[in-house]
Simulated scan of single mutants.
Amino acid sequence: MIVFRIGHKNYATSLTASGVNGRWAAAGRPVIYCAENIPLAFLENMVRRQGVGFNHDFKITCIEIPDDLLISKVDESELDPDWRDPYDYSHCQPVGNRWFDDLRMPVLKVPSAVMPESSNYVINTLHPDFKQIKLIAVTELVPDARIEDILKKYPGA
C-alpha cells in the first residue's frame, strides 16, 4: 500500500517524526501521520499550516507500507462524538497511545478528522517492523494557484 504525506521541503526526504503532541499520539511518541491519497494529505496539511509557508515550501512524500504488515484499525463508531474537536485530542490520544505503547502493529488506520469518510495512517517509528516501511518518492506539490492566493490573504502569512 502507498500512503502520502505533505511535508515541509526540509523534512520531506526522510521518514522521521518529531514526537510532538498530535491527535493520535501524545508528545514523546514519534509517529508519522500519512493519508490514503494526495488530496487528503493536502487538506490535512492545509488545516494545520494555518498560513505558515506557501505551496512551494512543501513536497509530497510517497511511503510504501508492505502489504504483509499488520495494521490496527480504529472505527469512527468506537470514538466519542467529540473526537474531531481541533483543540481537544483527549478523545483520540488514549487510543493512539495504547496502540503505540503495545507495539503489536506498526501502523494504525484512523478516520480523518478533516474528512471522516477517508482514512489516515499513523506509523510508529519505534516499532521493530518500521524498517520495512520505505520512502519511495518525493515529488513537487503543485496545486491550483488559487489555493496559494487564499493562503496569501490569510493574516500572518
Rank of each mutant, 00 (worst) to 15 (best):
V52I: 14
V52A: 07
R48G: 12
V47C: 09
D82R: 14
E78R: 13
V74A: 05
M46I: 00
E76V: 15
L79V: 11
R48I: 01
E76H: 07
N45H: 14
D68P: 05
E78M: 13
E44Y: 05
E76W: 08
S77F: 12
S72M: 11
K73I: 12
I60E: 00
S72Q: 12
C62I: 04
S77Y: 12
L43V: 02
S72F: 13
R49A: 08
D57E: 12
F54W: 09
E78N: 09
V52E: 07
F58D: 00
F58V: 00
C62F: 10
K59T: 00
S77E: 13
C62K: 15
D68N: 15
K59Q: 05
E44S: 03
G53C: 07
L79G: 14
D82Q: 15
E64G: 07
S72K: 14
G53P: 13
E78W: 14
E64Q: 14
R48Y: 15
S77I: 10
T61H: 00
V47R: 12
H56C: 06
D57L: 02
K73G: 05
G51H: 08
D67H: 13
T61A: 08
P66K: 05
D82K: 14
L69I: 13
E64L: 10
I65T: 02
M46E: 05
I60V: 08
D80I: 09
P66C: 08
P66S: 03
N45I: 01
D80N: 15
T61K: 01
L70T: 11
G51E: 04
L79N: 14
V47G: 03
G53R: 08
R84I: 13
D82W: 11
R48A: 03
V74Q: 09
E64W: 10
M46F: 12
I60Y: 02
C62N: 06
N45C: 09
L43D: 04
P66R: 01
G51V: 02
D80H: 15
I63D: 02
C62W: 13
S77M: 11
D67P: 11
M46V: 01
E76R: 11
G51K: 04
N55W: 06
I71Y: 09
W83C: 06
V74N: 06
E76K: 15
Q50Y: 06
K59V: 00
S72T: 11
V52T: 08
D82P: 03
N55E: 09
L69F: 14
E44T: 00
F54N: 09
K59R: 15
H56W: 09
L79C: 13
H56T: 07
